[in-house]
């Protein structure tokens, strides 16, 4: 699972064990904001050090850990915990790849709408092979697939279309033809899991191109308008379906398509 903003908590000795137990008991349960995992303050000295990593939805407050999102508590070995929620609002996080819409060109930066509370800026030099002379061809209204390099709550977020070695690595301007639509962030994470079942099943029906941004935007393009619409509608309906229901739906669509 692509995790964002890991917080590492260093806990000591037996308190950690108590804490871990209280966590383990509730894995897979639905938690609501305001739920608390508390443990006694570290009094006894011990040599054993243990780390608990808190992912999204969990927050440390002194000696306790607070739940700040509603969702299901998930666990990954060894000590990684997070809340799996189904929200729609996107909050930029460093390192995430998103689909943005260019809204303005101002001087040497582009303003990009990523669906967050603020627009992000994208320098024209942050494209593969771009120099002061050789500007990239980006128009207002174009789609860009790019990565956050600055994302914190007090500053304007900043995007780049190159990786650390200066390569495009799949990023940049895209999207001639094809359709852009929005889904929940939970569904996007499901699609981005390596070997995602939804994607695997879907590509059996007919070939299509897809770009998935962590901000809940998805762009698809198939051979015809009809097929693009089918893919888009199927993906939207995957939101609230069990694996079983999904398979029956896909089977039906495959029959109609052929």
């Amino acid at each position: 699972f692509p995790l964002r903003r890991k917080r590492v908590l260093l806990l000591r000795g037996k308190n950690t064990e108590a804490m871990l137990d209280s966590f383990k008991e509730r894995v897979g349960e639905v938690l609501l904001p305001g739920d608390v995992f508390s443990f006694e303050s570290p009094g006894s000295e011990s040599n054993i050090q243990d780390k608990v990593i808190c992912g999204p939805g969990l927050r440390r407050n002194g000696d306790e850990i607070l739940v700040c999102k509603s969702g299901i508590l998930r666990h990954k070995e060894p000590n990684l915990y997070w809340i799996d929620s189904q929200q729609k609002r996107y909050v930029p996080a460093k390192g995430e790849c998103v689909i943005g819409i260019v809204t303005a060109k101002s001087g040497d930066v582009f303003k990009v709408d990523v669906g967050g509370s603020e627009q992000a800026s994208l320098s024209y030099l942050a494209f593969e092979g771009a120099t002061k002379r050789n500007r990239p061809n980006v128009q207002v209204g174009d789609l860009v697939y790019s990565q956050f390099i600055i994302a914190n709550k007090d500053m304007e977020p900043e995007l780049v279309c190159i990786d650390s070695s200066g390569r495009a690595n799949g990023m940049g301007v895209f999207g001639t033809g094809g359709l852009l639509f929005k889904v929940s962030l939970g569904l996007v994470r499901k699609l981005l899991v390596p070997q995602s079942e939804i994607v695997k099943d879907l590509e059996k029906i007919f070939p299509f191109e897809m770009v998935v941004g962590m901000n809940g935007r998805i762009w698809v393009k198939a051979r015809s308008t009809q097929q693009t619409l089918i893919v888009a509608n199927i993906l939207e309906s995957c939101e609230n379906m069990t694996a079983q229901q999904r398979r029956t739906l896909f089977k039906k669509v495959a029959q109609n398509a052929s």
């Binding site: 819409i101 209204g141 999207g175 852009l180 308008t225 693009t228 619409l229």
Partner: peptide, 24 residues
């Protein structure tokens, strides 16, 4: 808060879809 801008690709797609008598 500002409205989410409409991208060129959405505009293009909608118009071609409408020409083909299809809707989203």
């Amino acid at each position: 808060m500002r409205e989410t801008p409409l991208s060129n690709c959405e505009r293009q797609f909608l118009l071609t879809a409408i020409k083909e008598k299809k809707r989203l």
